[in-house]
Amino acid sequence: MMFGLSLAAASLVIFVMIELVPGDPAAFMLGINAAPDTLAALRAELGLDANPAVRYVRWVSGMLIGDFGVSYTYQVPVAELVSARLVVSLPLAVMALLLSILIAIPAGMFAAARRGQAADVGIMGVTQLGIAIPNFWFAMLLVMVFAIHLRWVSAGGFPGWEAGVIEGVKALLLPAVALAVQQASILARVVRSALLDTLTQDYIRTARARGLSRRQVLVRHAFRNAMIPVLTILGLQFSFLIAGAVIIENVFFLPGLGRLVFQGITQRDLIVVESVVMLLVFAVIMVNFMVDIAYAIIDPRLRRR
């Protein structure tokens, strides 16, 4: 119920916001030499001459039966465009997130275990740097080293999964690293502070008193309880990575979802923008839902709520 209401509210907000943006898709497509009657003909062809209420109902009722409409500029179904972009964006987001987890959790735990020591200070310093470095700049650095000088990978682009999984992963590796650095830095700091919070709890002292080693306490008791804030951040990061990678997609000229939205906005391909934003809203709600389920798995006390 809440789910449906959120989506309905989101659809209305998206539609109104995007319709308010000035700029006519037909004028954009036909350029500056187009005659007024040509413009009118194209507007009619695109269905832009109907009034906004009619177009809103048309859009929403189409989406309910899985029809996201046809892109004005590309003139192919939006669903087709989006799925072609998702096969790039989704694996990229997953790779970046996995990398980020692989780096952040050990680093965060290590820093928490050695609180105040050189290792802790060192890791926190590096993560501070990781957050501060703009990811597009880091991405360019990666391209210079690995594509231009060493020639290990190409400077960007995506060959498509039909070229083989290895080729695909290779093309996404540098972008994933560029995205992961910032995310991992944030995550490592969250892991560390969450662990430090739980380490001061009474049950940790009890566990220690029962004779568990520092290490056992950290992994078995503290980490599990520290997972709640970590999961929250992970959920936010994943939602961000699906469409927020637009700058990295630009640097590596990847055909991802972020660039599709960006291009849709500049070309006033309103139907694409509306549908993709709607899809993202849906994805964010789904991710939050899954994070909620994960909370309950980790902390049985939350199940009763």
Binding site: M140, V143, A147, I148, R151, S154, A155, G156, G157, F253
Partner: peptide, 18 residues
């Protein structure tokens, strides 16, 4: 025909031989 909108990316792609 490959589409690269970012000028820096265009430079890198030329230099890398893509």
């Amino acid at each position: 025909f490959k589409f690269i909108s970012d000028p820096t990316a265009a430079f890198a792609a030329m230099m890398a031989g893509d």
